[in-house]
Amino acid sequence: MRETIALHSNLSKEAIPSTSLWSRFRSIRWRKSPLALVGGTLVLVVVTLALLAPLIAPHDPVKQSLSAALRPPFWQSGGDLTHPLGTDQFGRDVLSRMLYGARISLLIAVLAALCGAIVGVTLGLISGYYGGWVGALIMRLVDLNLAFPLILLALAIVAILGPSTRVLILVMTITAWMIYARVVRGVTLSLSTQEFVQSARISGASGARILVRHLLPNLMAPIVVIWTLEIARIILLESALSFLGLGVPPPTPTWGRMLAEGRGYLTLAGWISIFPGLAIMVTVLGINLLGDGIRDLLDPRMRKSL
């Protein structure tokens, strides 16, 4: 990541503040990047399933039914289509729990990556544009935050504040702002010396106006790429916390806790922990493929730095 800043300075030299991110996004030739297309499709499927969970889930995800406990998936003997992916030790439907679990994972990851972006981009802009001791202080904060094994810091904070969706979003934000701050600072540093920024300054635009109207639009491409990849990282971190018992508390189903609960039944009922693990993997893989694809297509020069 250290080389990020250096590489970004040459990424931005040719940045032109004319085309909007959306038009560049639309101009992407998706067919040229099969992996990005696969990633995009996977993400679309997962998001749709998560949004439609209340409509398509065959059962109530938290309803226990001991008479239906440990039913195998439909393709195994003893299983049937009432519980397509089987049931867990409490007779809860695995498929329904996975669909609802997707909602909570995506909600936390998307919001936390967004909050991280707001904090990180703001601090990165300030640090890069104004520099001085404030800028240096912000960068030292980045160094400080990067020194912590993030999962341990997250675990400690969640344990102290008590697990809830809000606390988890907060904690994930704490682990997510640094990369934005670093990259945005790097690009801002080099953009600040460019003519369009200097002419804005000469024509009397305020610092805030220059930051928001002139610098921010040029930063959108790297920000979107980081946001995507951060969502993938946060899903993994959130599921690890949940696995360790410090995720969103029951009865809300989460992929991480489903895995933890199924652990004891591995030989007897492997499906309880196999499917949620696959769900995490497929979702994260899809987002990573999409993020990598967007990065290469929007700006190939970003390739090495993100």
């Binding site: 993938a232 995490i280 893989l285």
Partner: peptide, 16 residues
Amino acid sequence: LIGQSVPSFWLAIMMI
């Protein structure tokens, strides 16, 4: 990319 997307704890359980 798949390696980067697998949760380590799930991989651990499956290997066990």
